[in-house]
């Protein structure tokens, strides 16, 4: 019987969403075009070629190496793309993803990525076209609500603040705004104005966000409600304490 990874314990909706994010089996909710994505990432002009940092691997003549033969390079590595980043910030008010689960998603489902997990933001570094693939995946699926999560390359302040009245996470650089019933982004991820307004789609309603979130909250699904998760967290802590304890004699 083939092994099926279980990813995460628990019977609550939050545990189920965490399993979805880790396995990459998430629902696609919106469409963002490649040009729009390039525009908001701000690393190169939309439609331009990917700048490269070295010639394509096929032209370089790689040394003989069993590992290189074994591991197929990613598309970005093959073409010699630059390493670029995408950084997300997720609100503590029932945003669908959290930095940890974005990192799990990137590390489990994509190759050639370097996810960085911080308390309020999550950054992925990868070859440019590989990074764009992850960014597109995470932005188009239920991992992102355009109001409760946003692309922020610099000045990430806002994830732990109360939401403003319109429900769009506070951003002191005002990259995202609610226009009508959709969220638009009119600056790139570091706050430079861009040529057009990029439509990021409709925000989730409060109920939908509560249903799709991976955050345990006392006012939604409390961590203590999930006895299986508690049991496993205790087990992990017990065992790492036990194995970490190494008396000298």
């Amino acid at each position: 019987m083939a092994y099926e990874p279980q990813y995460y314990p628990g019977a609550t909706s939050v545990a189920e969403n965490r399993r979805k994010h880790m396995s990459g089996k998430v629902e696609k909710l919106r469409e963002i075009s490649d040009d729009d994505l390039t525009l908001v990432l701000g690393h190169r002009a939309p439609g331009s070629d990917y700048p490269s940092t070295h010639p394509p691997l096929a032209e370089m003549g790689e040394p003989e190496c069993s590992i290189r033969e074994l591991v197929e390079p990613t598309a970005g590595a093959k073409a010699g793309d630059r390493v670029r980043y995408v950084q997300f910030v997720d609100s503590m008010y029932n945003a669908p993803a959290t930095p940890y689960f974005r990192s799990y998603n990137a590390a489990i489902n994509f190759r050639g990525v370097d996810p960085g997990t911080l308390s309020g933001r999550q950054v992925v570094e990868a070859r440019e076209r590989d990074m764009e693939e992850i960014a597109k995946f995470q932005m188009e699926t239920e991992m992102t609500c355009p109001a409760l999560a946003s692309l922020r390359g610099a000045t990430v302040h806002g994830h732990s603040l109360r939401l403003p009245e319109d429900g769009v996470m506070f951003d002191m650089l005002d990259r995202c705004r609610k226009e009508g019933d959709v969220i638009i982004m009119h600056k790139d991820q570091v706050g430079r104005p861009i040529d057009k307004k990029v439509n990021l789609g409709k925000p989730m309603s409060a109920d939908e966000a509560a249903k799709r979130t991976t955050i345990y909250r006392v006012d939604n699904v409390a961590f203590r409600d999930d006895s299986e998760v508690i049991e496993w967290v205790h087990r992990v802590f017990d065992q790492r304490t036990a194995y970490g304890f190494k008396p000298e004699n």
Binding site: A154, H157, F170, L173, D174, R177, G191, R192
Partner: peptide
């Protein structure tokens, strides 16, 4: 409340005007 800067304080866009509606 959280302060609203007049210009971008750091990053590649440092110094650009923010024009925050708040």
């Amino acid at each position: 409340g959280p302060r609203l800067p007049q210009t971008v304080p750091y990053g590649p866009a440092t110094g650009m005007p923010v024009n925050h509606p708040g």
